[in-house]
Design a protein around this nucleic acid. Sequence first.
DNA 1: CCTCCACCGGAACTTACGGAGT
DNA 2: ACTCCGTAAGTTCCGGTGGAGG
Length: 405
Amino acid sequence: MKDIFHGLISSDSIFKNKEVLRPSYVPDILPHREKQIRELASILAPALKGETPSNVFIYGKTGTGKTAVAKFIGKKLMEKGKELGVNTNFVYINCEIVDTQYRVLQNVANHFIKVWEERVPFTGWPTDEVYSRLIQAIDRTKGVAVIVLDEVDKLKGDEVLYNLSRLNYDLNHARTSIIGISNDLKFTEFLDPRVKSSLGQENMVFPPYSADELCDILGERAKHAFKEGVVEDNVIPLCAALAAQEHGDARRALDLLRVSAEIAERNGEKKVTERHVRMAENKIELDRLKEVVKTLPIQSKAVLMAVIIGEKYYDGLTTGEVYNIYRDICKIGGINILTQRRVADLISELDMLGIINARVVSKGRYGRTREIEISAPMKIKEVLEKDESIPDLSNYKPPLQSRLL
DNA sequence: CCTCCACCGGAACTTACGGAGT
DNA sequence: ACTCCGTAAGTTCCGGTGGAGG
């Protein structure tokens, strides 16, 4: 027992630097994004000459390098600014985490206010007070500020955008540029026209990566992440091909590669092979499933549990049968009972999430209903049984029906 | 060909709740 | 502290329907 960690730590790892494979890592080289980098740079360049740069909107699906390019540019801009003696600031905000008007303004403002000065508190100030502090703070820099709003569609209300977009009108000595990043192409359609025109001065679309491009990206990262010769030749093309099937998501490709290598390492193997990639594919899918199930609302969990139980007792499980079992589960667990109409919707939602398969079939005289199937019932059952909101059902038997098996 | 089951699925309505304004 | 929206979740009501069995 003394050495339980031996072989887990000291085993000569196949990784050189695993961090490189994490999605948050910003590499020095971004293959196949040279065009976008140049374009964004040319939009922001006037800033270094003391002119006002345009605001930019960046679209693109997940894992197309939007965030990486934005952060990369930010880094380069800071470097160039220092070189030219221009005061440049780069603020990155993820609107999925910082999602209200007040907190965005607070975050941006505090970026410009030194730690020892009076910072904007988490709560308490009127919003316009925060705004005027922000103006003061930015103006004082007499330089250029680039503010990146990642996942900007997650923002609650478009007033922040309006306020930020008119920053330049209120500034006397400094200049700002807002970069909005979104994976929803239709996002601006629902925006206030004033915001739309001032923020959408420039638009950029990041296309998905092709399999070949993903190969280059993975290859580039693998050079830094792994030791020499531990990854077999066909591994990277396979990861790239699998990710390209989805929608050219680089994040997914990197995850595949990383998880494959982790599996190989844990098995104490010296090389990452195609087999590990297949295992990784399964593991990622299963992890996703487990995560989705875990974060489901209680009602959906109860419905899902009913499906798992019903699937064992009935052949061609129908909505009505699921509903009966669901009602019993709710009674046992003291959960609110919803109407069948609502439960039918929950079943559709579970179907959308890919946890179950529900298709409408007609059984003639015996009505028209959904036939419900479930993938990986045992794994999902495991997750649900650990859930304290779902009661213990080990002694439960579904109601007897004529077509009970 | 007609009937009629057991649901589907649209629509309008009711709570419930959180943020914004005052 | 209070009111006033906007949104999400859920309910009520109901017309619609594919096809086995008569």
